[in-house]
Structures are given as structure tokens and as C-alpha cells.
């Protein structure tokens, strides 16, 4: 009987990864890492880790003599790297060295930091590093150029005022009717952001009339529409919420009400948000969650026109349970 320390360490690591992923799923923290669309895939990974753990555990003890066959898997042609095991492929049977200690430490690092440090919601510091304003201006810019090439010349005929634009007064009137919309529609879905073609089209139609209410499931689609066609939405009333982002070069009364849009995992989170203007802005701290109501106008950032919200009403809100937005997936029937 022989006890293999390295094999035991490996089984511990495999179990660790499995438990770590399962734990994130059970505590709901997984939403702070990945788009719920990939929940199943990540559960599959946790399961595979568990399976590999059960296989690895059989290699911890070997009977002397037969060890080569049991633990080294020298089956058939598998060992195309038989000359230098330790370089190409480590079966965990070669003697322990400082080099191996380093590689085990590297593998253990995410487990240690995962269990010991709390998961954090990305904040405005990351938004700054990701170039928040650049991407806001970018999405508006790319939208504009797309507009020029794809939209009919109807647009060119009525410069400044798109045909769908409603005078502000009319908007206000309609807004009065729309305040009946239940608050519930604004809460985060928290689950896979999936909807059918019909539902999606209905939501996009809603964009054409009344106050534009941003709820999480449609936020990114509305955002895209508006920033690619600012003129059309000029003067429309909007109601939205997000965390406060500020950057050097902003005026005293300016801030961005922003959200992170997560396509897969938070590493690919992009910033979307609306530059907002109101006198109280100077007093509001970064990373606070606020809800605003106001009217869309055209602002600019580094000579690129971007939507600007003139805020008439604002209040502090709680950070939602699922702080991120996910792009809409259209479900085909």
C-alpha cells in the first residue's frame, strides 16, 4: 500500500472546483458571474468535476508493484510523450519539486480567492477602466453610421425631427396615462432573458408611444434603438434607473445613470447608460443606485452626439438583486 500525496491533492482540488461551482448555484451568487443563459453549462462543469473527483480518488492508494499500470494509464498509444513525462504530461507520480509546488499553488489560487473573498458587483471603477463614455459614444456612433446607410431617405427629408417624434406636451399627456403601469414590470427578471418574437415586437412597439419605461428585460434593446436614433426620440419622456457613474471632464450637474450588460460572464460586461443633467447631480455619490425621470435631448461627448436626459425627478433606490442586464434572446417557436 502506498499513499500518493499528489494524487490526494489533485482529488481535493477537483472536489473543490465542483463544490465551488455548486455553491455559487445554490447561493444564487452565480448571477454575479455569468449570464443565466449558461447556467446549465456551468452545472455540467460542476458535475464533470465531481465525476473526475471520483475517478481520481481511486488513484490515491496503490498496491506496490502494480502502481505503474494503475496510476499511469500506460495504455496502448496514449503515451506519445513517454520520453519526458514531466515535461509534457504529469501523471502526478513524478517526484515533488518546487516547480510543481508553484503549479499546484496556481491551480489552488482561484479556489482560495473564491471561497475567501466575497463576490462583488462591478462598480464605477471598472466602468471607468472599461472606458464607459467611449463605449456609450461608440454605440451611439455605430448606430448613427448604420442609420445613414440603412434607413430610408425619409429621415433625411425631415432633419432634426423624425416623423415619429411627438411634441413634448403630447408626451406628457400620455405619460399621465402610463403611470398606471405596474411597478413590477421594472424588477429584474433574474433569469434567462428569453422572449418570443411576439413579446419582443410588442415591447418594441411600446417604445413608440408614451413614456419610455426601461425595465431590465428590454433595457438594452431600447438603449440601442435610442442611441442609434437620437433625433427620433428627442423630447420623449423616459423613466429608468441604474448606478451613478462620473468621469473627469463632466460638468457639475452631470452624471451617467448606467448599467452593465453581460453577454456571457462579467469579464465581457459592457457599459450602457444615459448621460443625465440635473442640479442635484453634484451631490450624488458614485455607485449609488438612483431612479430618474426626464426628457431625452441630444448631448455630445468628444464631438459624437449622444442621448442626454434632462432630469425632472430623481430618487435613491436599492441595488437590485440581479444588478446586471442580459441581452434579449429571441425564442423561435
Amino acid at each position: 500500500m502506498q499513499f500518493h500525496v499528489q494524487q490526494a491533492a489533485r482529488s481535493l482540488i477537483l472536489l473543490g472546483f465542483s463544490v465551488f461551482i455548486y455553491m455559487l448555484h445554490f447561493t444564487g451568487k452565480i448571477y454575479l458571474f455569468i449570464n443565466p443563459k449558461y447556467l446549465l453549462l456551468s452545472q455540467a462543469a460542476a458535475f464533470l468535476f465531481l465525476l473526475l473527483f471520483f475517478i481520481q480518488i481511486t488513484r490515491v492508494w496503490t498496491i506496490k508493484g502494480t502502481h505503474d499500470h494503475d496510476s499511469c494509464s500506460h495504455v496502448g498509444e496514449c503515451c506519445s510523450h513517454d520520453d519526458h513525462h514531466d515535461h509534457f504530461h504529469d501523471h502526478g507520480t513524478t517526484p515533488f519539486s518546487a516547480k510543481k509546488l508553484v503549479s499546484y499553488l496556481i491551480i489552488v489560487l482561484p479556489l482560495l480567492s473564491g471561497f475567501m473573498l466575497p463576490a462583488k458587483v462591478l462598480d464605477s471603477a471598472i466602468a471607468d477602466k472599461k472606458g464607459a463614455m467611449l463605449s456609450i459614444a461608440g454605440s451611439s456612433k455605430s448606430g448613427q453610421s448604420r442609420q445613414v446607410t440603412s434607413e430610408t431617405k425619409e429621415q433625411a427629408d425631415n432633419p432634426g425631427t423624425g416623423d415619429a417624434t411627438q411634441p413634448p406636451e403630447e408626451s406628457d399627456y400620455q405619460a399621465g396615462q402610463d403611470t398606471d403601469i405596474p411597478e413590477g414590470t421594472e424588477t429584474a427578471t433574474g433569469y434567462e432573458n428569453q422572449m418570443t418574437d411576439e413579446e419582443y415586437n410588442k415591447k418594441i412597439e411600446e417604445l413608440e408611444k408614451g413614456t419610455i419605461i426601461f425595465n431590465d428585460s428590454i433595457y438594452s434593446s431600447y438603449y440601442e434603438e435610442i442611441s442609434s436614433n437620437i433625433d427620433k426620440f428627442q423630447g420623449r419622456k423616459v423613466s429608468l434607473y441604474g448606478f451613478v457613474y462620473k468621469e473627469e471632464g463632466f460638468a457639475e450637474d452631470q452624471l451617467v445613470v448606467s448599467r452593465f450588460l453581460v453577454t456571457h460572464c462579467v469579464a465581457d460586461a459592457g457599459i450602457i447608460g444615459f448621460l443625465s443633467e440635473f442640479p442635484d447631480a453634484a451631490t450624488i455619490e458614485k455607485d449609488m443606485w438612483i431612479k430618474i425621470e426626464g426628457v431625452i435631448e441630444t448631448g455630445s461627448y468628444m464631438d459624437t452626439p449622444i442621448p442626454l436626459v434632462k432630469v425632472s425627478k430623481w430618487e435613491i433606490t436599492e441595488e437590485p438583486e440581479v444588478p446586471y442586464l442580459y441581452p434579449v434572446t429571441i425564442k423561435r417557436n
Binding site: A45, S113, L117, A119, K120, D123, C265
Partner: peptide, 17 residues
């Protein structure tokens, strides 16, 4: 550091499968 850790782990969680 917490931001770093969260991004680091999210890349791993997404890549593991």
C-alpha cells in the same frame, strides 16, 4: 482586488465547461 477576483473567477467559471 475584489473586482479583479470577480472578473478572474467569472472567466474561469465560463471557461471550465
Amino acid at each position: 482586488i475584489l473586482n479583479l477576483n470577480t472578473i478572474f473567477l467569472s472567466i474561469l467559471i465560463e471557461a471550465f465547461p
